[in-house]
Amino acid sequence: MPRKENLKSPIFICGCSRSGTTLLRTILGNHSNIYKIKGETFLFTKNKKLIINALEKKLSNPNETKYLIMSILASLFEGGLNAIPYIEKDEFPAYIKRMSDELMTHEKVDFINDVYDAFDLCANYLAQKENKNRWVEKTPTNIHFIPFTLSHYPDAKIIEIHRDPRAVYLSWKNAEHEYFKKSDFLEAIVTWRKSINAGLKYKNVLKDQYYQVQYKDLILSPENEIKKLCEFLNEDFEPQMLNVKVFNSFFEDTKDKTGFNKIAINRWENLLSENEKILVDLLTKKYRDVLNYPDSNAKLTLSNLLPFLLFTTKTSIESRKEIGEILKSKITLLIKGKGL
């Protein structure tokens, strides 16, 4: 189902988790023309098939169409993963039911044939309800499925935010969400590497449709960086875009604080161990060099590498093999006295 003509191209934010994607969504959501989709929908990441499986229904009657609309609305407001219990139990919050009743009277409801038609209708409806002429969706793992996203929205604007891998690792390590608690340190490094690799590939291919912003630049020079973002999106800069709350910090009380937390940029220098710095340095160097993230001041020794070869990791077999080969090659060089 095509978007209404008065809606501008949608915006998709992506990147490695713990890199500032939520901050970026908040900034864009403060713009008077941009509606912020509150949840990470995961609808454009094909590896989250559980969500699509929960949503895919044969639309043979109006009741099933309404069920699909309620499911999409729950995904937009609560996030795709949090919406699954509602979907599976067919028990939705009252505000979702009220909104779905409104949408069932929409002129385009009869054109809904699948999940993405329903998503389009709901996202457009919510944007227009708040007098916005475009919307922004943020799911970090979208970065691995950009062609899939563009197959639904060929004119979409893609924004990737990237961050120093050692800061990402520290944030990942201290995150409260169950997903991060269950994963190990290598998962953070592997995820960062894969995200950066995908971003570099798509940046070269998509050119004017793709924009990269560095977390550090956004924190240190927010107005300048946001103005560049607005230029990319063909929107006027608005001062209220700078009014953001300090959040997602696990080291200090951020209640009622606003602004851009500069402490978060290099906090890893004091909070990571020498072993951790060395490992992240080593496994991310290829991409750090491209993105101009310098080495840390940690010194590589045989003693701080050997333990990691014995570490049991939850990452994929392919990732373990690749990382193991990198570590073994560096250990071999150290034994031969050649250092890095």
Rank of each mutant, 00 (worst) to 15 (best):
K138H: 12
K138G: 13
T141I: 10
I143Q: 01
I143T: 02
P147H: 12
P147D: 15
P147E: 15
F148M: 09
F148N: 05
L150Y: 13
S151K: 13
H152L: 14
P154A: 06
D155W: 09
D155M: 11
A156P: 10
K157W: 13
I158E: 12
I158C: 10
I158G: 14
I159G: 11
E160V: 14
E160W: 02
I161M: 10
R163D: 04
P165A: 02
P165D: 04
R166Y: 01
A167S: 06
Y169S: 03
L170E: 00
N174Y: 08
A175P: 11
A175E: 04
A175W: 02
E176P: 06
H177N: 07
H177I: 11
H177L: 09
E178H: 06
Y179I: 07
Y179A: 04
F180P: 00
F180A: 03
F180S: 00
K182N: 09
S183F: 07
S183V: 09
S183H: 08
D184S: 00
L186M: 11
L186E: 01
E187G: 02
A188F: 01
A188M: 01
I189A: 02
I189E: 00
V190K: 02
V190A: 13
V190T: 08
T191S: 13
W192I: 07
K194L: 12
K194H: 14
K194Y: 11
S195Q: 05
S195Y: 10
N197R: 14
A198Q: 13
A198V: 04
A198C: 15
G199N: 11
L200V: 11
Y202R: 01
K203V: 03
N204C: 07
N204Y: 04
L206W: 03
L206I: 04
K207V: 11
D208A: 09
Q209V: 03
Q214V: 09
D217I: 07
L218I: 02
I219W: 03
I219R: 01
L220T: 12
P222K: 00
P222R: 01
E223F: 03
E223G: 02
N224T: 10
N224A: 08
E225S: 07
E225L: 03
K227L: 06
K227S: 12
K227T: 11
K228W: 05
C230V: 10
E231P: 09
F232L: 11
F232K: 04
F232A: 09
L233M: 13
L233S: 04
L233Y: 02
N234I: 15
N234S: 15
